[in-house]
Every structure is written in structure tokens, then in C-alpha cells.
Simulated scan of single mutants.
Amino acid sequence: MAASRSSSLSMPVGVVVRRLPGVTRWAKWSWKAVALLPGAGPADWSELRREGDAVEYHAATLPLVLWRTDTEAYLHALGARVPTVAVVMRPTTDPQRPLDVFRVTASPYEAQDYQDSGEEIVELVPMTAGLRAWVQDFCDRHHEHEPFVKRRRGPRMEMREEDGKGDSRVRQISDVYRAPRPKERLQ
């Protein structure tokens, strides 16, 4: 772990992925990130548990990085009914490693960015009590509340020039917003 006043703090987090039989004929298997292992060692799709067709793997261990500039997002995640960490994965063609688990984040804003792209699979996994306390402690030490400041308009300019405003194809000065007629169009 890094020093208390650094710009970031990192912890290795293992990601547990569950494989279940698919419910349609087009998908043989269903994959879902189901748990986190804070402080886990390295892993590469190590089988953890098997119950019939259901298998859980320790798919990867990735750093969960907290940044001082993102504390508002972490507080938003902690304030949810169930605080979560987003696990971001991509499908692969390798049958031994069907998903590339490449990112874990405590920021719901960053998770939304990955969801918007549509290229990745984003699973929200509940934070463990220890992980929640770790994120809360980081936010308590680094969050700086920014008060809302309403933007004010500048003074009106009464005698300003509006040169060049409107459609340049309209030759009349009186109504620069009027649409040009076909005979007025420039060739």
C-alpha cells in the first residue's frame, strides 16, 4: 500500500468468475463475476470450486486503484444500497480463458463509461466489508467537498455588432435569419 498523502492507493483484488450451463442453444455456458478476493495472490483461471456443472474460477488478480481526484465517485458507490466494485471483461476465443478480466474499479462513473461502449462485459460485484471500509477510509482522508457555485451571466451588451450572423446567402439586411429562395442561392 502506498503512503497516506500520495495521489493514489492500490490493493490487489482477485476476481471470482462462475460458469453455469447456458439456458439457450446458442450459448453453451453462462459466465458471471460473482465475488472479490481482497489482497489475493496472482491467479490465472484457477479452479476454486465445482458443484455439478457449476464451476467457480479465480480468473485474475488485478489492482484496485483509488485516486484522490475520484473520491466523489467512490462516495457515490458507497452510498448505494449495495456498494459494488465493477469488474470489466472482454470475451476471447481461447477456450482455456474465455474472458479477459482486465479492469476492476470502485468508480461507478468509470464503470458507466465501459458500459456505454458496448464492447465490454461489466459486472457489478458487492464489496466485502473490509473492502468497503478501505474505500471509506480513503475517502475520509482525501475527499474535499466542492460547494455548488451558480454561474452568473455577464452584463448585456446593448450596442453590439452582429456582423456575419445568419445565412450568408441571404442578401437582405432586414432579415438575416430568413431562408434563401431558390433564385437567391449562390452557385
Rank of each mutant, 00 (worst) to 15 (best):
R81I: 00
V82D: 11
V82I: 11
V82L: 11
P83K: 12
P83N: 13
T84A: 14
V85C: 15
V85W: 13
A86V: 06
A86K: 05
V87K: 06
V87T: 06
V87L: 11
V88D: 13
M89P: 01
M89D: 01
R90L: 15
P91K: 14
P91M: 13
P91C: 10
T92F: 02
T92W: 03
T92M: 03
T93E: 10
T93R: 11
T93K: 11
T93C: 12
D94H: 05
P95R: 15
P95I: 07
Q96F: 04
R97V: 02
R97M: 12
R97A: 11
P98H: 08
P98Y: 14
P98Q: 13
P98V: 00
P98F: 10
L99A: 10
D100G: 05
D100R: 11
F102P: 07
R103Y: 08
V104S: 05
V104N: 07
V104D: 03
T105Q: 09
S107L: 01
P108W: 01
P108F: 06
Y109R: 12
E110M: 08
E110T: 07
A111H: 11
A111P: 04
A111R: 08
A111D: 02
Q112Y: 08
Q112M: 05
D113P: 00
Y114N: 13
Y114A: 14
Y114M: 14
Y114W: 15
Y114T: 04
D116I: 00
S117V: 02
S117F: 03
S117A: 14
G118F: 03
E120F: 10
I121P: 00
E123W: 15
E123I: 00
L124M: 14
L124A: 10
P126D: 10
P126V: 01
M127G: 09
M127P: 03
T128S: 14
A129C: 04
A129F: 02
G130S: 14
G130F: 03
G130W: 03
A133Q: 08
W134C: 11
W134N: 02
W134D: 00
V135N: 07
V135Q: 07
Q136N: 07
Q136D: 09
F138T: 06
F138M: 07
F138R: 06
C139E: 01
D140N: 10
D140S: 06
H142S: 09
H143P: 02
H143E: 02
E144T: 04
E144G: 00
E144V: 03
E146A: 14
P147E: 00
P147M: 00
